[in-house]
Design a protein around this nucleic acid. Structure first.
Length: 98
DNA sequence: CTCATGACGTAAG
DNA sequence: ACTTACGCCATGA
């Protein structure tokens, strides 16, 4: 799998996250079966603007510093419960079969 | 080829 | 719960 294919795979995965669900960087990498969280983050930094980027968050449930509050606002408008600047992954974590 | 970097993750203190 | 360390590994200099 070359880089272009990898980029496409990441973007497709993110597009498939339904409203109301949230995935971690690691989830995306695992789903693709290639690379790791840092690679996914690198792709998001470069191409994230073209997909629902706000549905991808750190495993801790806290947004990446770069996006911060903007991400929390968008998630809340998706109907995701936010408590203390934090997403409850327990409740909303993406399941690829959706 | 070596080196630094980083929308990350996890363990340890 | 917070902070620090370290592992990770593709990418660019």
């Amino acid at each position: 799998m070359d880089r272009e294919e990898y980029v496409e795979a990441v973007l497709r995965a993110v597009e498939s996250i339904p409203e109301g669900s949230v995935a971690t960087y690691g989830d995306i990498a695992e789903y693709i079966g290639q690379g790791g969280p840092r690679q996914v983050g690198a792709i998001m930094r470069e191409y994230g603007a073209t997909v629902p980027w706000w549905r991808v968050i750190r495993a801790s449930g806290v947004p990446a510093d770069e996006v911060g509050d903007e991400q929390l606002h968008r998630l809340r408008s998706d109907g995701v419960r936010i408590t203390n600047g934090r997403v409850r992954l327990r409740d909303v974590r993406w399941d690829p079969q959706d």
